[in-house]
Every structure is written in C-alpha cells, then in structure tokens.
Nucleic acid binder design. Sequence first.
DNA 1: CTCGCATCTTGTAACGTTTCAATAGATTGC
DNA 2: GCAATCTATTGAAACGTTACAAGATGCGAG
Lengths: 344, 344
Amino acid sequence: MRKRASIKDVAREAGVSVTTTSYVLNRKSNVRISDETARKVREAANKLNYVPRMSARTMINQKSQLIGAIIPQTGSSHRLMFDNPFYGEFLSAVECEVRERGYHLLVSGTGPNQDYSSIAQMRDLDGIIILGTYPCEYLDELKRTGIPVVLVDAYIRDHYFHTVSIDDRHGGYLATNYLIEKGHRKIAFIAEKLRGYGIHEQRFLGYRDALAEAGIDFDERSVYAADVSYYSSFQLAQVFKEKSQGETGVFVAADIMALGFINGLRAQGWSIPEDLSVVGFDDVFLASMCLPEITTVHQDIAEKGRQAADIVISAVENGAKRDIILPLYIVERDSVRDITVREE
Amino acid sequence: MRKRASIKDVAREAGVSVTTTSYVLNRKSNVRISDETARKVREAANKLNYVPRMSARTMINQKSQLIGAIIPQTGSSHRLMFDNPFYGEFLSAVECEVRERGYHLLVSGTGPNQDYSSIAQMRDLDGIIILGTYPCEYLDELKRTGIPVVLVDAYIRDHYFHTVSIDDRHGGYLATNYLIEKGHRKIAFIAEKLRGYGIHEQRFLGYRDALAEAGIDFDERSVYAADVSYYSSFQLAQVFKEKSQGETGVFVAADIMALGFINGLRAQGWSIPEDLSVVGFDDVFLASMCLPEITTVHQDIAEKGRQAADIVISAVENGAKRDIILPLYIVERDSVRDITVREE
DNA sequence: CTCGCATCTTGTAACGTTTCAATAGATTGC
DNA sequence: GCAATCTATTGAAACGTTACAAGATGCGAG
C-alpha cells in the first residue's frame, strides 16, 4: 500500500518541473514540449502509476467531470423507484453516454429534506439530469447556481431548463383511440392520483381528447388511481371489479401498473383481454415478457436517457439550449380484444 | 446567477476569521466558540447560501464521502445490465443506504479499457462496491490503493476484500433437488457459458451435487448456455427443443434467463409446466409477475445491496473486515409440475 | 558581438477548505 | 501584583493541481 503519487513525485522522477509535467500529461497544444522531455514524463507517470486527482482539478477550473442524475423514489422506503423498470432502462443509457463522453455519473434519490441543489453545489456537478416533477423551490435554487439542468418528463415551462420529453397527451390519445378503434366505448383510465400536473395528468388529457373526438361522454367514475407500482395496481383490480361501470377497455398510464392490474384482475378470476382490454404506456421491456403481452404506447426509453446525457454535456461544453420531444407510437400486442368483429 | 459564496465570504460577512467559521460550521467539539459568534457565523452562512465544496475538503482529509458502484455491462453495447432487473433492485438498495449514511454514490459500468481502479483513485472514492467477477489485474491494483472494496457475488478468496455473497452452490442444489423431489429424473441445466469460476459455475456444481445425491447420472448434453439476457435465452428455446434429451425439468441459473426461455418455449408451442418444469434463480420481482409465476431460488437482493453498502461504509469508518453470506430458499410457484402423482 | 526571436522550461499564485500551533484577553490562585 | 490557567479566536501552512507570466537556451541575422 504505497503512498499515492502526486504530480510532484512524477516531476521529481522525470527530473523536470511540475509545470512541465502538467503540460505533458494534459497534452496542451499551445505549449511546446520536446519529445525527449515528454517521453521522460510519461515514463515517470507510468512507473509511479500516477492518476490525477479530480478534486484538485475541480478546485481550479470549477469543472468536476461529474454529471448528477436525480431519480424519484417510492414514498415510504426512500429507495429509488427501480421496481419500475423504466428507471433502470433510462439510467443505464445515461450512464453509458456519460461515460463515453469522459464524465462520471453520480446517482441520487431525493431524500425527505435532501435538496439536489446542494448536492449539485457540494459536488460541483457540471450538469444535472432530473427525472420527474419536483417542488419548484429546489429548481429555482438550482437555476441560481447556473448549472445546466435537463428536466426529463417534467412539465415545467422555463427558458433556463433544457428538457427531454414525449408528448404525453398525444400518447394518451393514441392509447385511448386505439381502444376506440377496436370498438370499445366504455373505457376506464388508471393512473397515479391526478395532481393537476405531470405526465399522468397529460396522459389523462389525451384520454379525454380521444373520448371527446369519438363523441363518448366522459364518466368520472371510470377514473381510478393507484401508486405507480405493481402491487398498488394489483390491489386496485379488486376495487375495479367491484365498482366497474361495465367498461370493456382500460388505458393504464404506465406499463408497470398495467401489468399489476392485469395480474390482479386474473387473481379475481378475469381473463385478459377476454373480459377487459388493456393498453399500457412506456413499452418497458416487461411489457413484452408477460402474458398476455401488453399493447402499449411505445417510447424509446434508452434514447431518452442518451438524449438527456447528450444535452446536459453539450450544454456544459458549449452552452447550447435544447428541448427535445421524442416520438411515440402504439405497439400492438395481445392485451386488447377487437370487439368490432362481433358487430358484423 | 450570483457568484458562489466561499467560506471566506461567510467569514467576512460574519466578521470573524475563516478558521472560526470553519469551526462553527463543522461543530468541532474540541474547540470552544462563544454562542454569539456561532450565531453570527450561522446567520452569515445562511444568508449567503453557503455550501462547502467537497473537492476542497477531499484534498485535505483524503475523504470524498463518495462510494463507487461498479456494475457489469452487456457485451456489445456498453450499457449497464439493467435489462436484468437484478441490478436495479440491487443498486436501489445501495443508493438508499449510502445516502442515509451521508455519502453519495457514483455508478459506473466497466468500459473496454476503463479500469475501475483509476476511477477510484481519480475520484478519491472512500470505498467501492464491485458486482460480479472481473479480471484480477484491476483488483490487485485496487488492493494496492488501500481503498475498502466489497466484492459482491465474486468467488475470489483474498483476505483483503470484503464480500457479500450467497451460497450459490447450495442454491443450485436447492433448485435441482426441488425438481428431483417433484419426480424429475432428467433435468437440464441452463446458464451463462461456464468459465470455471463465478456464480453460474457454482450453481452448476450444486446442480451436480443434487444429481449425484439422487443417483442420477450427469449428462453433458443436458447443459445449455446462453447470455444472461432475456433474448438470448428466448432464442435458446429453439435449440433446446431440437436437441432435447427428453428432459422433464430444467434449472435455469437466472430468472431473467428462465423467463426468456419459458417464453421462447411457448413461442415454439410448448406449455410450461406441462411440457417442461422450470426452476429459476434470484427471485427477481419479474419472477412473480409473469405467467406462469416462476418457482425459483429466492435471495434477498435488496438486503444484498444494503449489506454491501453497510460493509463498505463501516470499513471506511472503522476498518472492520466482514464477509457475509445471505440465506437462500426455494419459493414454490407455478412453473414446476409434480410428476410423482402420476406414479401413484 | 549583440540583438531579436524561436523554442523549451519553470516559479509562483491561486482554487477552498481544514488543522496546527500560537495569540490575546480574562480570570484565578497565591 | 505576577504567574498560571482557561476561554475564545486567529494566521499560516497544507492538500494537488493548473495557468500565467517570466526565465533560459540556442540560433541566425546584422
């Protein structure tokens, strides 16, 4: 366990100054160093296993080569929401992109009074990716720091924040309209409790758009809420069975919920799609691994992650402002029954 | 976008020295500061939104309050293996524990020539959690740095590294023996390509133990390999169908593979468990969300993550060496058919 | 022989924090 | 009334790096 070499040690070993050592190791193009010296320095660095300390660098140029990712967490346990595979798929893409661009990724949930703005400052984060919707106070605080921020899936209008989103409202429309095209007229909606903002709210608006367009009256009693989790949706199935208004189809605003709901329904003795048609949202890998495979609104989750990372790093490096909206489309699988055939 | 306040600014604002400011803000117990001064300092810090810079701290006390987590990645794309839900569940627990203990988490895959030892040095990681088995050169390098390392699921004997594991061999025995108890005599084994080490190798040994104990001859042709991924195992189903030696049961060394395999089989027209009984391993949340629900060897993935985080942080703070082996048990679900009844 | 100009190299300050040892001032003991 | 002790505060050094401005050295031209 030898003491870790500093640039001073390398300089001494190579017999040159610290400055020269730094120049060689950083390949500064505006300074000329003789090949001989450069060789000596590199050999010394190699021999001593020299690895520069980021913390020292950070102090000087205020850059940490660190990107932060803030992920929502489930209510009670303060764990990241990895029970929703969406987050894993997203984060995986972010990490990969970030690493390929020469940065590292710091991942954090948002504890009770953990404000990510101070994480950003404390760690001198170069940029930060925030998934989901959060209290505005911290966002304002973040804005004041001047760090590039990418908001993913947040419906926040502000010229400062970069955004990566999808058209959730249109997605909601797509899902609902698909059911309508398959002959369904009584269609339920299941999502997280509506709070007047956020992606589920938007998907709900899309649901209503489709209903309105088809001349179907909206029935408040067909709207159900559960947590964005498998088990909560599983349990909702029982409630649904009791209170059901005779719906033949349901649009569930997240695949993980759709799956829980479907399995909950099956536990109640129902068959899908025979007894109820279900359309999900996200096209999480789960959606095509279960039975029946879930018909859902596809979004490219990995691309979302890649874009978020690309935008934040581009912003760090050249300050370009970007807002991206990724495409959405229905992928037809087996959880919807076509009931138009019955009428012929 | 005001300039960020440093401790100097706080000191000036409070009208005291930098040293005093530092003492107040760090609540040093061995130095006495008058209440009045302390109040002034805190007010100033508050007013200026002062957040200490970790990088400066790190330079002094060589502690970064940062824990690293190294996750394997799928072969070609250099993405983290989040298509296997195991990693998400694990990481979520790690992140939570780490955060609650006042640290942050840096997550990284292992790029082609990305050695995690230099990440550790560059970032002054206080500790590092490594999931899976890796080339030893980097581990040796890491050992030389003196940083606490927790190896999770790695079969490496070394007094330096802390470990968190399960008894994979016993797990393999449990799975196979369960099939034997249900009357199966011809039992296949599916895992990642065996490399002579690693968890799948151990699970394979357990498989052979159970076979041997029951007096069943081992048949090399009943061993199949696929990547640890859904799709690879899905595809394997076709090969299996062609080359099958009349097995009535199969032990698949990972749930994600088991699920892919089951669905692949179904795509080939087979029914599970009627045509083949399947036992998985891990008890990933997926295992109970699919159809049939998979009978599998349960391990507490979140506990694994929590323990890994706890051990590494304890090692940082008081240097205790620990090796933990978590328990394993079979959870019976619907992917195994009891064929003993037929004989009665 | 000296000036000017490349080419290569270096000393030093700075980044923001903690910590050691030292100081000043007040209080006590004799 | 002076030393000893305690309390509250501080100056300066150190951590490892980069970047600025300045210093050598060599060479060709006048």
